[in-house]
């Protein structure tokens, strides 16, 4: 079980909460489990081929999963996934 931090723009898709717990052995599993619980997040995170959208940054704890093993990066109990979109408000 990992904790997924939900950014402001995705919160309406998960009932307004800031964090969601989701199961999975790796980053891809955890995010797909999130999408199963909250289907509205699916197209926002994943492109049609099942890979992450390029505009979505995902961090395992403090490291970008792109420099780890991407969606294959193993996730342990207590790990935190941060979904981070760009924001432009000033």
């Amino acid at each position: 079980m990992a904790t997924v931090r939900i950014p402001p723009v995705l919160r309406p898709s998960v009932g307004g909460v800031k964090e969601v717990d989701a199961d999975g052995e790796n980053v891809g599993d955890v995010l797909r489990s999130l999408a199963d619980q909250h289907p509205a997040t699916q197209p926002q995170m994943f492109a049609e081929g099942g890979e992450l959208n390029r505009y979505v940054n995902v961090y395992l704890n403090d490291e970008d999963v792109r420099v780890l093993d991407g969606l294959e990066t193993p996730v342990g109990t207590g790990d935190v996934l941060v979904i981070l979109p760009a924001m432009a408000g000033g």
């Binding site: 505009y55 760009a86 432009a88």
Partner: peptide, 25 residues
């Protein structure tokens, strides 16, 4: 490097008015 491409418009609430806590900026 951080954001190679911008998010699509529906995920980029940067056009027009958005709410923000006045203290936050």
């Amino acid at each position: 490097c951080l954001y190679p491409v911008p998010p699509p418009a529906e995920l980029a609430p940067s056009c027009g008015a958005n709410g923000v806590l006045g203290v936050l900026p």
